[in-house]
Nucleic acid binder design. Sequence first.
DNA 1: CAATCTATGTCAGAATACTGACATGAGTCA
DNA 2: TGACTCATGTCAGTATTCTGACATAGATTG
Lengths: 162, 162
Amino acid sequence: MSQGEGAGAAGVDLETSLGYLLKEASSSLRAAMEAALRPLGMTVTQYSCLELLSQRPGLSNSELARGAFITRQSMNVLLQALERDGLVTRPAAAPVGKALPTRLTARGRRTLDRASGAVRAVELRMLGEMTEAERAAAFALLQGMVVRLRGGEATVSAPSAD
Amino acid sequence: MSQGEGAGAAGVDLETSLGYLLKEASSSLRAAMEAALRPLGMTVTQYSCLELLSQRPGLSNSELARGAFITRQSMNVLLQALERDGLVTRPAAAPVGKALPTRLTARGRRTLDRASGAVRAVELRMLGEMTEAERAAAFALLQGMVVRLRGGEATVSAPSAD
DNA sequence: CAATCTATGTCAGAATACTGACATGAGTCA
DNA sequence: TGACTCATGTCAGTATTCTGACATAGATTG
């Protein structure tokens, strides 16, 4: 049966699997981002958090966690560190409910600006010579995969970001 | 200017970023695989290791680590557990060099067979109604990204054709 | 032959993310 | 109003992965 080399029938052929290649691409991207952010003393997750806050000010801890694809507990630890370092601010009390709207400080924005350039360079390198049509095709194909994997769930619900 | 909502010029627009979408897709795939493997009491990394060993018997610890996109130290921890549970075997002494060729046991193969079906179902769901041409296109596009990301690190040159 | 380089396996500690749990605030519904 | 459900923030413990370090085996090089 599939006991020798060729395990392509019952299993997933790693040579041609889109899932495996997707993981490889994501791993490569993460490694490249880590290398680009290391000189700035920043991790990928920290950058993701700051970038999210830049484009969607006032996101709560849970919303940031979903946007960075980690749990809200992990994001909470990260936010506490960022708050301690003066990169973000959170009100002591929630204006409504329990959600604490987080915002970048001036220092946080400056830190993000440096990192954002490095990350954009990585993304540009990744895109390379891809044409606009190819980028659009890749975007559509990946989006389709996400939709089917999640069963048609939305990504990050964008609340009224003031 | 770019400090409010629309930070599309200096940074990376998360709404249209292929990198962000790539991370989202990988996260979705991992979550789906975890959900599929949880009933079997197996993690994604464990499955990756067993699948690699099935298709490439005799891979060493370091080779498995590269194939699963983790460090060889982490893979070593995983292999020790798999060996303890009787799913894989490693010779006590290296036949050549220091590399220890790892192989699946009968029990490991049975465990993998169950998991492999579950994972293949996830991949099929991810592919959905994609045509063969679309799959090939996605594969080629992702492969290109990997090549460019792994390629130059200091040189952002990337001789563009346009 | 000897020195050097590279790759590997492994141990130990640190960093990161996750699961479990609890209390709180808001919305829903009888 | 009161019970119920859901989402959130947070604490605590666990699990996984990473970085650093060391010794060893083979290849390379002079």
